[in-house]
Nucleic acid binder design. Structure first.
Lengths: 226, 226
DNA sequence: AGAGATAACGTACGCTGTACACATGAAGCC
DNA sequence: GGCTTCATGTGTACAGCGTACGTTATCTCT
C-alpha cells in the first residue's frame, strides 16, 4: 500500500506524503474542528483529532492558530455567526420572544458548544451582533440603557442556564429521573416526590416557554408604552 | 535534613515517610480539593495537586475515590450543601426572591464551582434539597406541578447563566469593555455603542435584581391568589 | 508473636498541548 | 534554467494529566 514514495535510497520514509501548500487554511481547520466536535463531542476536540480529520499533522495547525484556545474561539464565533437576526413582526414584544427562542435554538443545535461558550468570555464580533439585535428590539419598546442591557443579559443568561439542563439530559439513563425521585425519603422531600412526573420533563420546551412568558410579562410591565 | 530514616543499609530510600493509617479520609480529601480550587482555580485542581496539599501521593487518593470525577462530585455536593434554606418572611413571593438571591450568592461565593456545576448533571442530595425548598415556597403561592418545576428551573437557569457573566469578568482587562465597544464601527452597532457605559456593569447586582423583578412579576401574575 | 487485610505509595503508560528543529515546495531574482 | 529565500508542513520531544498495576508498610486479630 501507498507505493507513492518508493525511494529505496532512504531506508525509513520518515515523513508521509506531504500535503500541498495551500491545503490548510483557518477555515478548513475550523470546519474540521466542528466535524470532530459534533461527531465525537467537545471533550474529544483535541489538536491531534482535528489534524487526523484533515489527514495532516498536529503541529501543522499551529501555523494558523497560535494556540488551541484561539482555534476554539474561532470555532465558537462561527457558531454564533449562524444566529438568525430577523425581526419579522411589528410587535416588539413578540419579536423579543422570537429573539429569545432563536438564541435558544442556536444553543440546542450546537450542544457541544454550550459549555465552552459558557466558560469563555468570547466577546467575538458575532456576539456583539446578537446583542445589537436585541437592543434594537428593546429600543422599539422604549427600553434603553441599563434596563435594556439588563433585559438582554437576562434572556441570554436564561438561555445558557437552561441549556445546561437540556444538554446534560441523558434520556437513556436508568433509572429514569422521576422514578429516582420517587425513591427519595418521603418525609424529607414530599414536594419533590409529588411533582416527580412533572420533573420528568424539566428543561422541556413547554417549561421554557412558560418561564419566558413570565420574564416577558415583567419586561412588558415596565415598558414605557402600554 | 530529614534524618528520620537513616537506614544506611538501603542506599536509596525509595519511599518517604509514610503517613499513618487513618490520615486520609474522604472529608479531608474534599477539604484539600476545595483549598486547591479556591486558591489556584478549578483548572488547577489535579489529583497530584490535591495529594501535594495533603503531603501525600496521588495514588493514595484513589483508595477513597475511584475516579477524579467522583471526587469532584463530592466537592460540588458539599458546596451545594452550604445553601441556606431559610424562608424568613410570610410573603411567599418575597421568600422566592430571597431564595433566588441566596442561590445566586452561593454561586458567586464559589466562582470556581460554577463551570463544573453547569456541566455536570450532579443530582446530589443537596441539589434535591434546594429544589424541595423552592417547591415549598412556590406551593405557598399556589403554584404546583409543571408551573412550579418550570419556575424553579427558570430561577436556577437564570442564576447559572448570570454567573457566567460575573465569573468570566476580568476587570483588570485592558482595554475596558466600554472603551472596546465604543471603538466598534458606529454604522453597524449604533445601539451597542450608545449603551456602552451601561454595558460596563453588565452582570451587576443592579441588573440582576432588575431581571429577577421581571421574572417574579410574571410568576405573580399567574399565581392563583392575587 | 505471627498472619492477614488493607491503606499508602512508586512506577509506568497513554494521552494532552505545544516548543523546537528540520524538511520541503513555491516565488522572486539573476 | 539555476539559485536564494521564505513560508508552511512535519517529526521529535517534553512536561503534565488521569490512572492501572504491583509493592510495601502498618493496623488488627488472634
Amino acid at each position: 500500500m501507498k507505493p507513492s514514495t518508493p525511494q529505496t535510497t532512504s531506508p525509513a520514509p520518515r515523513q508521509r506524503q506531504r500535503r500541498p501548500r495551500g491545503s490548510l487554511t483557518p477555515d478548513r481547520i475550523v470546519e474540521a474542528a466542528e466535524r470532530v466536535a459534533t461527531t465525537e463531542g467537545f471533550e474529544a476536540l483535541t489538536v491531534r483529532a482535528v489534524a487526523a480529520d484533515l489527514e495532516s499533522s498536529a503541529m501543522a495547525l499551529y501555523r494558523h492558530f497560535a494556540t488551541k484556545e484561539l482555534l476554539v474561539d474561532a470555532l465558537l464565533d462561527t457558531v454564533l455567526g449562524r444566529f438568525d437576526c430577523a425581526s419579522p413582526t411589528d410587535d416588539w414584544l413578540e419579536d423579543l420572544r422570537i429573539f429569545a427562542r432563536s438564541h435558544r435554538r442556536l444553543l440546542t443545535m450546537h450542544p457541544w458548544a454550550v459549555a465552552p461558550l459558557f466558560s469563555h468570555p468570547s466577546p467575538g464580533l458575532n456576539a456583539v451582533r446578537i446583542g445589537e439585535e436585541a437592543l434594537r428590539i428593546l429600543a422599539r419598546g422604549g427600553i434603553t440603557d441599563d434596563a435594556a442591557v439588563a433585559t438582554f443579559s437576562g434572556i441570554i443568561a436564561l438561555n445558557y442556564g437552561w441549556s445546561a439542563f437540556t444538554v446534560a439530559r441523558d434520556d437513556s439513563a436508568e433509572p429514569t429521573l422521576p422514578t429516582a425521585l420517587a425513591a427519595l425519603p418521603a418525609d424529607q422531600f414530599p414536594l419533590t416526590i409529588s411533582v416527580a412526573t412533572s420533573m420528568g420533563n424539566y428543561g422541556s420546551d413547554a417549561h421554557y416557554n412558560l418561564v419566558l412568558n413570565h420574564l416577558l410579562t415583567g419586561v412588558k410591565s415596565t415598558a414605557p408604552e402600554p
